[in-house]
Write a protein that binds this DNA or RNA. Structure first.
Lengths: 341, 341
DNA sequence: CTGTTAGCGCCTTCAC
DNA sequence: GTGAAGGCGCTAACAG
């Protein structure tokens, strides 16, 4: 089905049929105002008839630029990245640029490979949605011949323009809230290989240490894609290690959903006997029974901004490296008690 | 930040530094065994030092082929497609091919644009994860110079190799099950612009018509991205139109989750007073309270097969057009009563 | 094992 | 408003 196929129609084929030179056909496509209307229309019809599709490889090679952006995300199972991706799309949608995604599977190696691939393609711009291998990718980025936007944690030095959020501070706020609600044995459930999750764990641990309530047995993670089922499993595991657990901070809302279901099955009354705090404020958080207390990150906006930065810098303007900080918000709903006092 | 950058390192640059000709460097990368070990190593070091990254455009142009697959999905908000994408990845992961995704937003126009873009890039193969514009895309596909795998509904004539599932039959089975459980006023909730959803609606309607229970007021859709919140909204709307509704068939599990939450808030007892059936058997279906009755499609397998077909046909072997039919399974859990009789 | 020659399909630059 | 010449960076085909 491959090699033996009919050769594809080229610009030259169209030009010959039109009785003009190749460059004229090329102009019809790129600078139509430079070709006389009648000739232009005739060529346009011919292009349609012959099913001509320009070859991007040749175009990119000759013009030395490309009009697709590459967006790398570490995972497709986490909804958080989907919201992020939608933000990028929204901004890029009615520009002349196209988007292509790739998945790095939370792997530094894969991230490097994908960045190399994008660079190989002379991509117009790259968004690194979740930076896994900071050091190792930085080298590549410095050599990149296109704008690169990184989404990172506050306080991280980046080689490129960055959109930064403070995961550690967000986790601190959530943990403090659980303490303020009077919970004392607060577990943390998460996904092991997730870099951003690690920062959240740090924030959580810091607060509990200060309160003298820290215990490694409270922390449970699993090295697998996040899921609601994982939330159930991790809760059972945590309760085995520390049966007195009275609240859970989940590194994402999918886990929190599972925790709620499992807690209900175990007869825990939420929020009276048992508090739950999620992370990301996904769509279902508001409609759960009870609605989920969670941390909201401006995921869509982060994506939108990333797309915007890319478009602006790809426009040809030189842009200096900058870092855009975006905040978080703790959304207090009904899976946590009202704070005491 | 863009144009004014330093030129990127080329194959020729490396060759000059190594004191060899360009082709030798090229061989080191593609056919290393054809270059003497010592020279090979020297060149490899140089490539590393100089940060040389091959230009895919030039490579694709010269060799007339490309090693990335394009995967088009109609939506990123539906988890069903994520499972599908994961299947494709799993198969492709340790081949020499790479994957790039694009989102068509349930739009025929966008689908055509994206297919054109992929063709422009001389993509090694294309997977159309959810076919929106059958007729219009078929023309393009016939001209495609690479293997194309379509995921379609059974009974649809395709221009390319296809993986087919029978959404209408699956919806019929689900609706019959609800009838067998003794529910009589069965609503259907869905997403408006979804082609596959349309087929499911047909299956549902057919069964209810046969049972003499069909009523257009039972069908409620919304023209927006699917969500759990939408499930809540649609249920309220449906109950307004027909307060006697005693069961709901949801076109996906996210809607079903919202329906369960909303039904619980409205004091409906599930499954005794109120039955719910979902679609897709997503991760959370087994752990809900009660667990969700739903239709399972082999989404991961569909993706895996698509990837497999692509790899096999891209290998150079000519493959004849074929259609692979995959089945569905009705998973009876506890959001529906036990069938009478 | 290494090199030479030619050209992929298009765009840039400069003529007319 | 249109065209001719040359080259983008790489690889196929053929030499040696």
């Amino acid at each position: 089905m491959r090699r033996g196929r009919s050769e594809r129609t080229t610009l030259m084929d169209v030009a010959v049929r039109a009785g003009v030179s190749a460059i004229t056909v090329s102009r019809v496509l790129r600078e139509p105002q430079k070709v006389s209307p009648s000739l232009r229309q005739r060529i346009l019809d011919l292009i349609e008839d012959m099913g001509y599709v320009p070859d991007q490889a040749a175009r990119a090679l000759a013009s030395r630029h490309n009009s697709t952006f590459g967006v790398l995300v570490p995972s497709l199972t986490s909804r958080a990245f989907l919201n992020f991706m939608q933000g990028v799309e929204e901004r890029v949608r009615d520009s002349t640029f196209r988007i292509q995604y790739a998945n790095t599977h939370n792997s530094v190696e894969e991230e490097k490979r994908q960045v190399r691939l994008l660079m190989s393609q002379n991509t117009a711009g790259i968004v690194l949605g979740g930076l896994e291998g900071l050091e190792e990718v930085s080298d590549l980025i410095r050599r990149a011949n296109c704008p690169v936007i990184q989404v990172v944690d506050v306080g991280i030095e980046t080689a490129a323009t960055a959109i930064a959020v403070d995961h550690a501070a967000a986790a601190e706020a959530a943990t403090r809230h659980l303490l303020a609600c009077g919970y004392r044995a607060i577990a943390l459930l998460g996904v092991a290989p997730d870099v951003r999750g690690g920062r959240r764990t740090q924030g959580y641990a810091r607060v509990l240490q200060q309160a003298g309530l820290y215990d490694p047995d409270l922390i449970h993670t699993e090295n697998a894609a996040t899921s609601t089922q994982m939330g159930c499993r991790l809760l059972r595991r945590a309760l085995k290690a520390r049966p007195d657990i009275d609240a859970v901070f989940c590194q994402n809302d999918d886990l929190a959903l599972g925790v709620l279901f499992e807690a209900q099955r175990l007869g825990r009354r939420v929020p009276d006997d048992f508090g739950i705090c999620g992370y990301n404020d996904l769509d279902f958080a508001t409609v759960m029974n009870p609605p989920l207390t969670t941390v909201r990150l401006p995921l869509f906006e982060m994506g939108y901004r990333a797309g915007d930065l890319l478009i602006r810098s790809a426009d040809g303007r030189t842009m200096e490296r900058q870092t855009i900080r975006l905040g978080f918000e703790l959304i207090k709903r009904r899976t946590t008690r009202r704070p005491a006092g």
